[in-house]
Amino acid sequence: MKSYHLDHLQHLETEAIHILREVAGEFERPALLFSGGKDSICLLRLAEKAFRPSDLPTPLLNIDTGHHFPELNEFRDQRAQQLGAKLIIRTVEAAIAQGLAQPVPGEISRNRLQIPTLLAAIEEFRFDCCIGGARRDEEKVRAKERFFSFRDRFGQWDPKNQRPEIWNLYNGRLNPGENMRVFPLSNWTEMDVWEYIQREQLAVPSIYFSHQRACVRRSGQWLPVNQLTPPTAREEVGNLVVRVRTIGDIMSTGCVESTATTVADIITEIAAARITERGSRADDKTSEAAMEDRKKAGYF
């Protein structure tokens, strides 16, 4: 007898495809946020599965902090080209130059400055929906996020007053100036993402695999040595065999010591890990409510 059974990845896949097609059906000008990171790589494959053989109905949008790993940007550009997708890049540098974003002296990350840059891009292209690769298991504020996350005219998220989300019926209705953020990977875990990359044989940027890199020890983490914040004489510097588990700003993304050179190695490593993925991100450690404050202001 034939069994009509879907395994966990197939379940997650059909859920995400359904959401992507709801976006295509209900919004006029959606954009898909693509950084070249592992989550958005999965998102892009799901978009191919949802819309092929047609072209993707959304352009790809990336907010470049200017502090990205160069490997990531190369990968981003190459992948967009392979897919024949339109890639829109807006930079924090330009937003600062235009007076849209104001840096605070001493600020480590450009996470905060991404917010006005993103909101300006949404306004410029009149996007009514941004599809992102955020997952609920990443962080406990993200764990409260809906698939369809409503933002008001100021790009703000009101976590105490979210729209109920029942069965697979998503309410995507907006008034002018309002905006939706949609997260098709909400129910995926870090393990699911890597298992999907393995199953779909997706290419990922080289920095996810073990490589040799000069790192500096800061607040209990190994951060990549970079020109923006060079090591001081008192700091410990090492030439280590590392990989990154999650990619953010080059100044706040911790490297983990690892010998994983294949996707299968990474899966084995995550299965045994005793630290979460976000444990290597200095930007989330500022305070217990760091992510909540950024999200309320309009962060991804």
Partner: peptide, 24 residues
């Protein structure tokens, strides 16, 4: 505190919105 992700939840000691958690 593992699941109450919002500041208002931790302050009041209550759960306001659905929090999703994953384990295997």
């Amino acid at each position: 505190n593992l699941t109450d992700g919002l500041r208002a939840e931790r302050e009041q000691g209550i759960t306001i919105d659905v929090a999703y958690r994953y384990f295997a």
